[in-house]
Amino acid sequence: MSSTLERHAVAVGDLLVGEGPAVVIAGRVSLRAHHGQADAFEVLRERATLAEPYSAADLPAIAELADAVVVGAAWTRDIPLVRAAAGLGLPVVVERRAAASMEEWLGLADYCAAAGDGRVILCEGGRLDLGLMRAAQAASGRPVLADVSRNIELSAAAVAAGADGLIVDGPCRTAEAPEQGSGWTATRTDAEPLPDLRVAEEAVTVAGALLRPESPATLPECRQAIDRVDAALATLLERRAALAGVVQRLKPVGGFAGRDMARERALVARMALRAPSLGEKHLAPIMNAVIEAGLHLAEERSER
């Protein structure tokens, strides 16, 4: 098992995996799907972010056109190909074989680190054992990715479990980032990201803002982190407004006349336990504004 317990990050193209916000990576290309019958340079001409070889013949194209090489779960026991892939001088994404233990997974990651330049990222895919993924991250200190292509609904759970990034099937990469600065990579042929990319982006933005600690070092990084928190806050406020509307429909006395001030004071007191730096003094006017906005919205909807 790896003894490298210090947490570190690995750059994959324009993204930093392991520090700062979680990222979304699209553009994984598996040359194994072509069974050695395709020209790797032609397949990768759009510049793949992550590329998985079929054989050693694919490695020159991967070295030239990809940002990272994937040691895929299906061939982790092909040691000559693993060694050759790890020696390309690219970051190596080591996918766990379905039946592999954590010790086997981390042992292979250590082997790839020794055969290459040390830049190794763990990847959990398939049925996604998020508990094992988290344990491997803690034991090794290496960054981890969760491939949610087959389980896009687990995107938020993967981020909550500590994934440093999500892999989503999609187009190849560009440096373009979303408005909220959540950190993702994908070429968009339409005005909006593909649905699965949007789900993953929301997961790294909202779940990441709530659960992933950040230490921005520059003003732009700090503003991007604030944007992510604001996005999560807006999502929660929208949900709260919807629930407040349900309460107004269920109350015998609705609207502003139905406000329970004692309950609101207790709410603020409980919130102050989670936000002690703000305290009740600063939280009270914030929550009053939130409650009033929800009541106004409920009234507007009832008049339609």
Rank of each mutant, 00 (worst) to 15 (best):
I152Y: 04
A156I: 06
V159H: 02
V159L: 08
A160C: 15
A163R: 04
A163P: 01
G165P: 04
V168A: 03
V168Q: 02
D169N: 03
D169Y: 03
C172V: 03
R173S: 13
E176D: 13
E176A: 15
A177N: 12
E179W: 05
E179A: 15
G181T: 14
G181S: 15
G183F: 04
W184V: 03
T187C: 04
D190A: 15
A191S: 14
P195W: 14
P195D: 09
D196W: 07
L197V: 14
A200Y: 02
E202V: 01
A203W: 02
V204T: 10
G208M: 02
L210Q: 11
L210F: 07
L211A: 14
L211T: 06
R212D: 09
P213F: 06
P213S: 13
E214Y: 01
S215H: 10
P216A: 07
T218S: 15
P220K: 04
R223L: 15
Q224V: 09
R228G: 13
A232W: 02
L233W: 04
A234Y: 00
L237G: 08
E238C: 07
R240M: 15
R240V: 14
A241Y: 05
A241F: 11
A242F: 13
V246R: 08
V247Q: 06
L250S: 10
P252R: 00
A262E: 13
A262H: 00
E264C: 05
R265H: 12
R265N: 08
A266S: 13
M271K: 00
M271H: 08
L273I: 04
A275Y: 11
S277L: 06
L278K: 06
G279H: 10
K281P: 01
H282K: 15
H282W: 10
L283P: 07
P285R: 07
P285N: 12
I286D: 03
V290S: 02
I291V: 13
A293H: 05
G294L: 09
G294M: 07
H296S: 03
